[in-house]
Amino acid sequence: MTAALASPALAATLGSTSRSLGAGAAAVTRCDSDGLATRPNLSGTTVVSVTVSGIASECEDLIVRATVTGGTSSSGSTVIPSGGGTLTVTLAAAVGVVESMRIDLTVSK
């Protein structure tokens, strides 16, 4: 009874991106069903920012955080603008390009 009372109120608060409730479940509703594309932007031989494209409008106002790991590691974050689309995440520090690099990207509230 308690859960039945609480869920609608909480769901209304969290909107379409809410976590599901119950028994510690961590199920998540994604705001973008068809996935994103990520590109590193270079300045000389370093990555200075990351372009994220293909963002669904349902993701607006959420936060994108990118961490680039190459010669070193650095992160940056930004808020998804109204309508989604494409955005650029500027890194706190430039990361040297190496043979194999990694970009970790999260979309969060």
Partner: peptide, 28 residues
């Protein structure tokens, strides 16, 4: 109950989606 549940799910920092990008470059 509602405040307790809201606190429990950490709304402010919920990760909703995760991606990884591998960049392979012929640097030399």
């Amino acid at each position: 109950v509602v405040p307790a549940l809201a606190s429990g799910v950490s709304v402010a920092s919920s990760t909703l989606d995760t991606y990884r990008t591998c960049v392979l470059s012929g640097v030399s």
